[in-house]
Design a protein around this nucleic acid. Structure first.
Length: 643
DNA sequence: TTAGGGTTAG
């Protein structure tokens, strides 16, 4: 017989300690081996608000003998797993002390762990003869924990063997997780086979398989499946768009987003976060702004990721003030490190080093824990602002204060920081003390510093080193050739060029683009494919005269060829950024800023010329190169020529 | 009382 403890709550709610006090005197432990699910201690559990209260209730449950029955511990476990993140160590403890945990407890705990611990629990479930038999939930949750952060494919295969043996192969939930598992291991043929063989395939099965192809970078196959599927939901669209964005096909991603709207599908915060990343990379400010308005209009819930996406979009589109305004809007969520990182990287690429440092200090005060990305941006900011000592201090604090091991990217930032500031020896020492092998990015940073500071000897030595590590690295060889050309060592420059030809290394062509009324116009060096080519080139000729009158003299030093000065000037005047700027000046009304994106770094001459253009034509010109922004205005650049 | 698929920063 179930014994009901009569106990009524007074009109005014008593405090928890008072309630516990009263319970422990009215409930006799010896009489509560049998209990009711209405046991006051259990209903009390639901009203626990803090960990301390839960612990008190837990203690009382033990004293009252409630832990001799499976139900009360499972209730407590449920409570411990409900917050986000769940109170895992405590939940494990409760689980270990539970007599005969019900399957529900196993399942929820396996799900909550979603780590190798899930597999251990699953195995203990199979091993224990008194434990319940696993069901479809068990298999779905345990397989979901298989992946890069969880356990490996070998173990996943074992679990799969179990589920087949127990007849769960036909369960659509289970087989969808299997598809996902193979997908995340890049085993798309296996994923496809399970998909083809599954009997009750549904929308999620399609989305899981498409997600596998997208994640593996096979956007073609992902799109084919997307086109084939009988019906699509917002996840299907988002998955394929994200796939395009991930491999750098931003235009294709934007096009699919447009198709999505034409198809009448409603984007959500996932879709928009991805599309914002595409806008950021394309410097599609108009589309980015449109998405911002859409978020407000459609009342899309702002979360940390979406906010980070918006901040990043504005920053990468040159609108650092808009990014800052958005960041400072108190109604926006800033609990996680994401929006902080986005803002920090924004300040870094705009060369606003002092603001980056201030933001980092504010972040610490707000108890937002920095991560490794935070330090990449922070050190980059220090590098662009020549904050050498500050950078050193932050770098040293990574491990000692924040417990973050510097990775190769951080060493790269430091080599760049020291090298740019002219501390070439110290930069090289930094490389020799790295706990990991330097890669070409590190050597490239040092080589870049050799170029800036004209250190031919070190440049030659580093260039040779790079040739040994990665003979086909084009960027570094071009840098080396630049170093030789600047010091008029044409034979050496020619040797490097020959080496590039022999190794089949081809320089990535410089490409600049500009958005005009939602259309992107791309220009390569000496490009003659644009419909307005004729006008652009005559505009350039006219511009050359105006610039010379204003005092501009071309910086021919880095032209790789030993040709006469006039030809060098011509070669420089056809650089892609100049074509794009000319096109922008021709097609936009005065007063409108011109935004250019370049895939490589701006060359010295283009940087020099753009300063003059901004003054002569009285235009603000915002150039985003591979690394950072340059805001040209009234003959000056925001980078103060330190880049 | 437990379901599954898609997001970001260097």
């Amino acid at each position: 017989m179930v014994r009901k403890v009569s106990w009524t709550v007074a009109n005014s709610k008593p405090t928890l300690p008072a309630m516990l006090q009263r319970l422990s005197t009215t409930v006799s432990p010896t009489k509560t081996l049998r209990f009711s699910s209405h046991h006051p201690l259990l209903s009390l559990l639901d009203s626990c608000k803090t960990l301390d209260q839960i612990k008190q209730a837990h203690a009382e449950m033990i004293t009252a003998g409630l832990f001799l029955h499976p139900f009360p511990p499972s209730k407590l476990l449920e409570l411990l797993l409900s917050p986000s993140p769940p109170l895992l160590p405590y939940a494990d403890l409760v689980f270990r002390h539970s007599p005969f945990p019900p399957l529900f407890s196993y399942n929820t705990l396996i799900k909550a762990h979603s780590s190798p611990a899930s597999l251990l629990l699953f195995r203990s479930l199979l091993r224990d003869p008194s434990a319940p038999l696993p069901n479809q939930y068990t298999f779905a949750f345990v397989l979901a924990a298989c992946g890069p952060e969880g356990f490996g494919l070998v173990e996943g295969e074992q679990v799969r063997g179990q589920l087949i043996r127990r007849g769960f192969e036909t369960n659509v939930f289970v087989s969808n997780v299997v598809i996902r598992m193979y997908g995340c291991w890049g085993l798309l043929d296996d994923a496809k086979r399970v998909f083809d063989e599954s009997s009750g395939r549904d929308l999620v099965s399609w989305n899981s398989l498409i997600g596998g192809y997208s994640g593996a970078g096979d956007t073609v196959r992902a799109k084919e499946l997307f086109d084939e599927m009988p019906e699509r939901d917002v996840v299907s669209w988002s998955t394929v768009i994200a796939g395009y964005v991930q491999v750098g096909c931003f235009v294709e991603g934007m096009e699919l987003f447009r198709d999505m709207q034409l198809a009448g599908a409603t984007p959500n915060e996932f879709t928009l976060t991805t599309v914002l990343a595409a806008c950021a990379n394309l410097v599609a400010l108009d589309q980015g702004r449109w998405i911002h308005i859409y978020i407000n209009k459609a009342r899309i819930k702002m979360n940390d990721r979406l906010l980070a996406g918006l901040i990043d979009m504005y920053a990468k589109c040159g609108e650092i003030e808009s990014a800052w305004k958005l960041f400072n809007d108190e109604t926006n969520p800033k609990r996680t490190v994401r929006p902080w990182n986005a803002m920090l990287s924004g300040f870094a690429i705009h060369g606003r080093s002092d603001e980056a440092v201030e933001l980092f200090e504010r972040m610490k005060k707000m108890n937002v824990l920095p991560d490794k990305v935070t330090f990449v941006s922070l050190l980059n900011a220090c590098s662009h602002g020549r904050l050498v000592n500050q950078g050193r201090l932050y770098f040293n604090s990574m491990k000692s204060v924040h417990g973050i091991d510097p990775e190769i990217e951080h060493y790269g930032c430091m080599v760049d920081l020291l090298g740019r500031a002219g501390l070439l020896k110290e930069a090289e020492e930094m490389i020799s003390t790295m706990p990991m092998a330097p890669d070409t990015i590190i050597w490239g940073a040092l080589l870049g510093a050799c170029r800036i500071h004209g250190d031919i000897e070190m440049g030659k030595r580093i260039g040779k080193l790079i040739s040994e590590v990665e003979p086909k690295h084009v960027g570094c060889h071009v840098l080396l050739a630049n170093i030789y050309s600047r010091s008029r060592r044409w034979n050496d420059a020619g040797d490097v060029r020959k080496h590039l030809e022999i190794t089949n290394g081809r320089k990535t062509p410089g490409c600049s683009s500009i958005e005009l009324n939602g259309m992107f116009h791309q220009f390569l060096v000496g490009d003659k494919s644009h419909p307005q080519t004729k006008q652009i080139y005559s505009f350039l000729d006219e511009m050359a005269i105006k610039l010379k009158i204003a005092g501009y003299a071309p910086e021919v030093g880095e032209v790789l060829l030993d040709i006469d000065e006039e030809d060098k000037e011509t070669a420089l005047s056809r650089h892609s950024e100049k074509l794009a700027i000319a096109f922008g000046l021709m097609n936009t009304s005065s007063g409108t800023p011109i935004r250019i994106v370049k895939n490589l770094r701006v060359c010295r001459d283009c940087h020099h010329a753009t300063k003059f253009i901004s003054k002569v034509y009285d235009r603000e010109i915002i150039v985003r190169d591979r690394i950072r922004f340059h805001h040209f205005k009234d003959g000056y650049c925001s980078c103060k020529d330190y880049w």
